[in-house]
């Protein structure tokens, strides 16, 4: 049971990571910086609770706001470049963040012990949950409450004009500009929102593992972040959720029994899915709710109206 509750925690924080990349990807930008924002969120939230004794909830909010602002600052120069150049620029930022925490030392004494980020050794004893008597199940529930709020919020934004505008920019920037959309504002807003969500994910992650170090926030994590929405499809937020469950639940945990062959099969399965469903598991523009609850596809409904 403990194992499954732990897995649920992992799925939760990775869903937040995936959603942060999803928002940015909607505008057509492939950002490899999400792991960097996740790292900043993790360190900021951990410092708030472990060093200054703040409650987890405000700590995560502080982490989210600070990564959102950071993403905005990074977004302005980074979004002046496109495509592969943006991948390189954001990748460079991610590595910068990682190297920063590799060298970052700031420890204070609390209850007779030194606590805080300690360079390459990482940040130990982020023990808010055990100190306050939260069981694994409580933590999983807490994380999933936040995940559901973020999912719901993004799903709602997706269905407003703001969501349509993000997709319009992602589809054709020249056309988007021609109809009077301010590309810089929209892209930076998406980047800031994505950064804020990554910050929440990172902040929660730090507390589930109690020990964070620069190494886990590398290129692999950035790749995972962007793989979730691509694999799940940009149709809706639920694609990302499904992809996280598929990758973390099935490929990473479910296939543990085959040992070292897992990594090989892992790559092969992703290739297979992308070949069978090039627009992602849930496809491009289909709310799973709509497909579940209506028998007719939207196109058929229209054909009837025309008659």
């Amino acid at each position: 049971m403990e194992f499954y509750l732990g897995l649920l925690q992992i799925l939760g924080v990775h869903t937040l990571l995936g959603l942060s990349a999803y928002v940015v990807l909607l505008t057509g930008q492939v950002s490899m910086a999400q792991a960097g924002f996740y790292a900043v969120g993790a360190y900021v939230a951990a410092m708030c609770t472990a060093m200054f004794g703040i409650h987890i909830l405000p700590a995560v909010i502080i982490a989210s706001v600070s990564t959102g602002i950071l993403a905005m600052i990074v977004g302005f120069p980074a979004l002046r470049v496109r495509g592969l150049m943006l991948v390189v620029a954001t990748l460079a930022f991610g590595e910068m963040v990682r190297m920063f925490f590799f060298n970052f030392r700031w420890q204070i004494e609390r209850d007779g012990k030194l606590i805080g980020p300690n360079g390459a050794e990482g940040f130990r004893a982020i023990r808010f949950f055990p100190e306050n008597g939260w069981e694994t199940g409580d933590v999983a529930l807490f994380i999933w409450c936040i995940v559901v709020i973020v999912l719901g919020l993004l799903w709602w934004v997706d269905n407003t004009r703001a969501g349509a505008v993000l997709r319009a920019v992602g589809h054709d920037e020249v056309a988007a500009q021609s109809v009077g959309l301010n590309l810089t504002t929209i892209k930076v807003a998406a980047m800031a929102l994505g950064g804020a969500i990554a910050g929440i994910g990172g902040g929660l992650y730090a507390h589930t593992v109690t020990h964070i170090e620069h190494g886990v926030f590398g290129i692999l994590l950035a790749t995972f972040a962007i793989a979730y929405p691509i694999l799940g499809g940009l149709g809706s937020v639920f694609g990302t959720l499904l992809a996280v469950i598929f990758i973390q639940g099935f490929l990473v945990e479910g296939l543990r029994f085959i040992g070292d062959w897992r990594s090989l099969l892992f790559g092969a399965l992703i290739l297979l899915v992308m070949n069978l469903r090039p627009t992602g598991l849930l496809g491009e523009r289909m709310s799973p709710l709509k497909t579940l609850f209506s028998r007719k596809s939207p196109v058929v409904t229209n054909a009837k109206e025309t008659q």
């Binding site: 589809h171 054709d172 020249v174 056309a175 500009q177 021609s178 301010n182 523009r285």
Partner: peptide, 22 residues
Amino acid sequence: QHERTALGVARTFQNIRLFGNL
């Protein structure tokens, strides 16, 4: 461009550029 649109300039393209995903 977006400021010009706000003032009242709009256009179409020689090769149609719609938002096909919307």
